[in-house]
Design a protein around this nucleic acid. Structure first.
Lengths: 120, 120
DNA sequence: ACTACTGTACTATTACAGTAATACAATTTT
DNA sequence: AAAATTGTATTACTGTAATAGTACAGTAGT
């Protein structure tokens, strides 16, 4: 379960996002146990408190549930994860398009830019 | 000179970015005087110190220059602004594509998504 | 039972961005 | 000359994110 983080952005939501992705694409399955708070903290070179907070956020969303003393487990509602990932895709795309428009690009210019980026 | 800011992100670099755009697209011309630190702070509902910091950043980049007691003026090198805007476009596009890949989208899926977003 | 692991809770500390208020210096305007 | 406006500098405060350290509670394996 590799977690890659961008240290220049808030870490907690990034952890939530990554786990959400792993659930949505089936890498983490319903009922499955996930890495412990301390374990993931070491792997991601992050403070256990930060991981704890992220897991609690995912619990509120119904993606994880905790069993005290035993561990954290993936929730039963796998579709929820896909919904969240989709909304992330949409919101981040809107944000990106807005920025590009601010920077003076038309929709067509944006598409051309992305097409050329494919060939790198 | 309208400045629109996203309060959920660091303000200082946003101000720098917006001014840079205004210079690159010719809204602000070489030698022209820009709004005063205090004036812009009021217009953008932001602290004067933050504007001051942003202007100093733009001075380092050669886009603005200050005359004590008189005001801030647009520098002579208009091409520099365009270069900076272009590098912003490229870096933010790379970042966006990276995020979308993390979220499980292929290049083709991203292009389709953006094409459909055009028709909103 | 014991040990090791787990989640949970709490306080203190650090770092950073932005705010707030004030004072001073230089130029422009009147 | 005086007043107003500008840039500049300094200090203190606030809110937030993350770290650090510690302690406690529940579970699992031996």
């Amino acid at each position: 379960m590799a977690i890659k983080l961008d240290k220049s952005r808030p870490i907690c939501p990034q952890i939530e996002e990554q786990i959400c992705i792993l659930i949505s694409n089936g890498t983490l399955k319903s009922g499955e146990k996930v890495m412990s708070v301390r374990e993931l903290a070491v792997e991601a070179s992050v403070n256990p408190n930060t991981v704890q907070k992220a897991f609690e956020g995912l619990e509120e969303k119904g993606l994880l549930k905790s069993v005290r003393g035993s561990g954290w487990f993936v929730g039963e509602n796998g579709e929820k994860a896909k919904d969240i990932v989709n909304s992330l895709i949409i919101s981040q795309t809107k944000e990106y398009l807005g920025r590009m428009h601010d920077l003076g690009l038309s929709n067509e210019q944006i598409l051309n830019l992305l097409r050329s980026d494919d060939n790198e």
